[in-house]
């Protein structure tokens, strides 16, 4: 099978004249590469497969399987309603404490899952990154996808709980989708930045759970903003998570949401964070395979 021997092509300069267009030209990237959404779209099958993998393997070899998606937040909500509702006797705006804290956890868990998943997506898939090419943004986006599925399941349970306790949302529920988008942008922005950082510094994976634990108690999840002393409330509102979490809860529980301005500020912070996160991610992207 040796009939087509080709001489080595040394003439580099002649490589321009009458050639068909290359499908792709690889050259060192300069500046910060464009997002190239088109390319990500062409890898949508991979995106779905990876998200599907996450969902499928999570509850393999568990007795209760998918039930854990609803059991985990329900148990956490139970603990909160016991500690903060029954023992500490905090107010829950006249809603049963279980439903109240579950509504808070719905948004919080979504945020924390997305952040956790996105920030570890590069290190967790190091073997893929060093062996195959695909737009690296596929990893965080598929991570987000699998979290969205959990969120929808949690939301369905929330609707059931609302039905049980005869809670009817009012017009303020319109803030709900806005708040969800703000949470996604925040979680993705911070997550992308941490993911890029974690490639070089694994410290991030040790610090993050600690910070998340602190943030959980610094956010209106287990209790309402109303119980924060008025003197401290301005500090409290510095937390960009506060407005979207409050908006989600009041929307679901049929309470008026009093602070659209704060939500607007949160949205701006979130968008800025998202742009910064994407920038950090894209900047590190070309080095991932070499460093990881």
């Amino acid at each position: 099978m040796n009939e087509t021997l080709v001489n080595p092509t040394v003439a580099v300069e002649s490589a321009s004249a009458s050639r068909p267009q290359p499908t792709l030209t690889i050259r060192p990237a300069s500046g910060w590469a464009a997002l190239n959404l088109h390319e990500i779209w062409s890898f949508r099958d991979l995106l779905l497969s990876l998200a599907g993998r996450d969902l499928k393997i999570r509850y393999k070899q568990t007795a209760l399987g998918v039930l854990w998606v609803v059991l985990q937040p329900l148990l956490a909500a139970g603990v909160f309603s016991f500690v903060f509702g029954a023992v500490a006797g905090l107010s829950s705006d006249g809603v049963p404490y279980l439903v109240f804290s579950f509504a808070g956890l719905l948004g919080w868990n979504f945020f924390s899952n997305v952040l956790g998943k996105v920030s570890s997506c590069l290190v967790g898939n190091a073997h893929l990154i060093s062996k195959v090419f695909f737009p690296r943004l596929v990893l965080p986006i598929s991570g987000l996808g699998s979290c969205v599925v959990d969120f929808v399941v949690g939301l369905a349970l929330m609707v059931v709980l609302m039905g049980c306790y005869r809670i009817v949302p009012t017009g303020s529920v319109l803030w709900f989708p806005v708040a969800v988008l703000v949470l996604i942008a925040l979680a993705m922005g911070v997550g992308l930045w941490l993911a890029a950082l974690m490639v070089s510094y694994r410290d991030v994976s040790y610090i993050l759970p600690v910070l998340m634990n602190i943030l959980l108690y610094a956010s209106p999840v287990a209790y309402s903003v109303a119980v924060v002393p008025a003197k401290l409330r301005w500090v409290y509102l510095l937390n960009p998570l506060t407005p979207p979490l409050e908006a989600m809860r009041s929307g679901l529980l049929g309470k008026p949401f009093g602070d659209p301005g704060a939500l607007g500020i949160s949205a701006l912070v979130a968008v800025a964070m998202l742009v910064f996160g994407l920038y950090a991610f894209k900047r590190m992207e070309r080095k991932f395979a070499d460093v990881i």
Partner: peptide
Amino acid sequence: IISRITEPTEGEIDLYGRVGSLLEVGTG
């Protein structure tokens, strides 16, 4: 570099056609 897993420092590669790379059996 040809598989686009890592970037070149200098130089160019033109590829005429879709590239599939098998750097390992059973990746993923």
